[in-house]
Design a protein around this nucleic acid. Structure first.
Lengths: 208, 208
DNA sequence: CGCAAAATCAGGGATTCAACTGATTACTGC
DNA sequence: GCAGTAATCAGTTGAATCCCTGATTTTGCG
């Protein structure tokens, strides 16, 4: 398979190249950010693009959307460290055929490539559950899962305000604030305040 | 050289292993977090430990400090994506002999190992400037009010572990963990977990 | 050796949170 | 108009947190 590799860490790219070539694939190009990946996807016409999720200039998700728009025949695998449900669902919506965790063995990536070439979809163990949950919940939360009100409350929570203060600030009852909080956590599949803070930071609701 | 590899992404470890072995080194062990790295450093007696900076349970910096304390003969290289001056200085203070950026070529890591075995210190291009600046400024900003133990506990808390789990992971009593937590909050003048998370992220103990 | 800081452990009380179930009102889209 | 979603409010239970007070042991350093 002709593979395009995109990751902002050159040392990681080189390592991945070694792993892929050992498995019999050809790495036709290496990109250090989403823009490069986009350009290379057009010019090199790879069979598969393996994209890191967090890259400078253009992240893996948006790069995937663009590649899919311009060259729908290129299969896309997101390779990342994030297990968050939101990312997984967004990736699938963006048309990615695979979502592989960096914490998995290289074997997992190889298998993903094999399955995807057969027309299958591949998800690393550990994220498949997210998709099942989302299906069962039926709450389509891939694109901007939270309502404006919920985002507002999330931000206050992440800023460290206790629930009763959130309620006071928004002129709503304590119970309502608590209810929103529950919904947010349920939607995001998050069970700790700490993960909430990281999510808020990632969403740009908050500065570290 | 007998090398110990520590990075929380298995797929990255496997890639690095390939690169190092191609360069004639032997990877005697792979660790997925700071704790494992510590254990392996003791049992496997590697010549060099290559540590990722941000790892769960115990980060690369604190792992480096511990390894240095227990086995000063093991040379340590921090391998990371962060160019921030603070990290570089802390790494050097922790006794690391090398600071290599993941954005560099694999060649850079190989060269670092070679230089360090000769007794030299190696810094990736791009971070050397930080050290010079720090020397010129003379403002010692590697300072961190927290003790190593406290940082370790802060990291676990920020990762979302409840106190009793922190205690279990460190083999200390629930009350001790709680006590550390209090001290941390008191020292930092912080009263919410959320601010703790942001502090941990700023300190690089944790990824957003 | 002796001081100071760090790390360990313990109890108790007030507050807060998580997770559920269940309900009413209002706006929006088809 | 009617369904769906958002936003609002309420109660309960068990768990976890924050903050205080105290104590012992280990460790590092002069």
């Amino acid at each position: 398979m002709r593979v395009l590799l995109a990751d902002d860490h050159q040392i990681v790219r080189e390592g991945l190249r070694g792993l892929l070539e050992k498995a019999g694939h050809t790495v036709v190009g290496e990109a250090a950010n989403g823009h490069e990946a986009l350009k290379m996807a057009r010019t090199l016409a790879p069979d598969i693009a393996v994209l890191d999720l967090s890259m400078p200039l253009l992240n893996g998700l948006d790069a995937a959307r663009e590649i899919r728009r311009l060259s729908p025949e290129i299969k896309i695998i997101l390779l990342t460290m994030y297990t968050d449900r939101g990312y997984v669902l967004q990736a699938l919506k963006a048309g990615a055929k695979g979502y592989v965790l960096k914490t998995q063995a290289a074997e997992d990536l190889i298998r993903a490539i094999r399955e995807i070439c057969r027309g299958e979809v591949y998800l690393s163990p550990g994220v498949a559950a997210s998709v099942v949950d989302a299906y069962l919940d039926k709450t389509d939360e891939a694109a901007d899962p939270l309502t404006p009100r919920e985002r507002q409350i999330l931000q206050l929570i992440a800023e460290g305000k206790p629930t009763k203060e959130v309620a006071a600030l928004l002129n709503i009852s304590f119970k309502t604030a608590e209810s929103h909080r529950s919904h947010i956590m349920k939607k995001l599949g998050i069970h700790e305040v700490t993960a909430l803070v990281r999510y808020a930071i990632q969403q740009g609701l908050l500065r570290p």
